[in-house]
Design a protein around this nucleic acid. Structure first.
Lengths: 333, 333
DNA sequence: CTGAAAGCGCTTACAG
DNA sequence: CTGAAAGCGCTTACAG
């Protein structure tokens, strides 16, 4: 038996397909369709195991009840958690999520945005890689509801949600300075990414306020490709330059750095701070203080704004939301 | 300007929409459309920034170029990695992935399958929770291409890919036994899940082969809800029962157990084995040996089979694929 | 070589 | 209170 359509139900019951559609979409109150007819329709739909065909509905209504999500890499626990929260909130509103990973490539990113347009997603959530302004502006021109998360891009008329990146790394760096550290390494990937850049700014600001120089040997910007290798090399540079402490700009950088650091006998004598607090730190047995990103809230605020756009196509207010993030010490609540 | 359609291009160029469609779908070779016309069409499509409307195409062709993926929880790193590999392979074939987390609930699972049917996904990949046989059989009846991953369900006519779960935990348990362990705890969640059940069987088999009794106090089956709490309690039971070693049945169980174990001074004197090797183990500074699941291969084999079904609707061969998994020691390549 | 037309399964004004 | 009909944007036999 082929798939059951509204027409099949209508024919079986001897009513019009309009009636069936109205009942199944619970619009029968308005048009006051007979209670008995409505009941008959509902019963038949269940018996015949009817499932609406969203392709047809979408073609007609222009809505898909689907959101698109582009992260850098869904297998990065930070993004996976974000995706999970977004999934939950979207599901509560009757939406499903389609995801894609950009691997920080603007080419892949653009492809994903095109696919999402073709699949008529009702809104898009995006962690923008470097050089993605063009693709983002295309979405803006097409009036696709859009919110950036984790990284806003200044100057673009697009809403974004992120933590206070400057503040977070400023605070963390100050913790090290207060404890007497003088040679503080900064480990990050691609320092050109808007959020990483801000994290660098916070580090720089803290050093400057104490009148300390920025030693460029202590600032490592590691590319996304050949990540392990590059981290290893960067860590060697830092050790060779006699650091007493390190700022990790992200979870992934932190974990990979610690793996690399295990090759050095005295790495546990250094002091560490990190933006993000992956579970790995709980076990690392090092002196580390973290900023925990409010991932759930990031997801909530993102969808709050996105749904405002989706539900009211005329709504055009652009918000640049900055959330405060909290200091935590891994393993000690 | 509203979205550009094939008709818009056709009108602008003074050709029929059939011609435009044929050219844009590269079916112009067959029908031998004039080279100049084809070129004109292609140029206009680019100029006008045309994007096909997949809802319309899907309605017509019945294909969406979208796959559905249901895992237990996308924020679990094992599933996130699996999702990532599936995303990559699917993208190479021109497919995108829609995901959902079941939280091990058969209700949520069923809802997700219904949504996927409504959205006309071309195929579904599923990590089935307990009591999901009914929903799965509905998919089978609807002839939706379907593959189970991580956990096959015996008796169902559905292809599945998983590691040799019995073998993996048998091997791991033997490692402990060979090293003189006598009181081996088994930490798992829901032992009724097909894969966990097999992991338990491997543990049981190893003990029996040495003539050792199964002490039910040492076998912990922890539910998915209130996970942290339950793990804490289970670990206390194990410690109270004087274990000398533990088998962790999954990454999540392992990590959460180790967090709980940190409350006990001597936990580093125990010996551990685990199915899965999360990064956390690298830092835990304990005696642990793992089975690393070949996640990438799991993804590949899953899609190999799924695409056979998708590409040939008459193909009905059911495969039950078991992959071998390898022993690794975290942090030591 | 190309066009006119049907039809995928819905929703929704419109008519009665 | 309900039905007939149009139309969303495609693809694809069919006709010429």
């Amino acid at each position: 038996m082929a798939r059951v359509s509204i027409k099949d139900i209508a024919e079986k019951l001897g009513v019009s397909s309009a009636t069936v559609s109205l009942v199944l979409n619970e619009k029968d109150k308005d048009s006051r369709i007979g209670k008995e007819v409505a009941e008959k329709v509902r019963k038949a739909a269940i018996e015949m195991n009817y499932r609406p065909n969203m392709a047809a509905r979408s073609l007609r209504t222009g809505k898909t009840k689907t959101l698109g999500l582009i992260v850098a890499d869904i297998s990065n626990p930070f993004f996976a958690k974000l995706a999970r929260h977004i999934e939950n909130i979207a599901a509560d509103k009757g939406y499903q999520v389609m995801f894609g990973s950009s691997d920080e490539s603007s080419i892949k990113f653009e492809k994903l945005t095109h696919l999402f347009i073709e699949k008529n997603v009702d809104g898009i959530i995006v962690v923008p890689p470097q050089d993605s302004e063009g693709s983002i502006m295309e979405l803006v021109k097409r009036k696709v509801p859009l919110v950036l998360v984790d990284r806003g891009i200044e100057g673009l008329p697009v809403s974004s949600i992120q933590i206070d990146n400057v503040g977070a790394s400023f605070e963390l760096t100050n913790i090290l300075l207060d404890r007497g550290c003088k040679r503080i390494g900064f480990m990050a990937y691609n320092i050109n990414l808007p959020n990483i850049k801000k994290r660098y700014e916070g580090y720089e600001k803290a050093l400057k306020m104490r009148g300390l120089p920025i030693d460029s040997n202590l600032v490592c910007s590691v590319s996304f490709e050949n990540f392990e290798e590059n981290v290893k090399r960067a860590i060697k540079t830092l050790i060779d330059n006699d650091i007493d402490s390190v700022v990790f700009a992200t979870n992934r950088v932190g974990v990979q750095s610690l793996i690399a650091l295990q090759d050095y006998v005295d790495y546990k004598k250094l002091k560490y701070v990190s933006i993000d607090n992956p579970d790995e730190y709980i076990f690392a047995d090092i002196d580390i203080t973290c900023i925990a990103q409010p991932v759930k809230e990031l997801g909530e605020r993102t969808l709050d704004i996105l749904f405002k756009y989706i539900e009211n196509p005329k709504y055009r207010v652009v918000e640049y939301v900055t959330l405060q993030a909290n200091i935590v010490i891994p393993g000690k609540e």
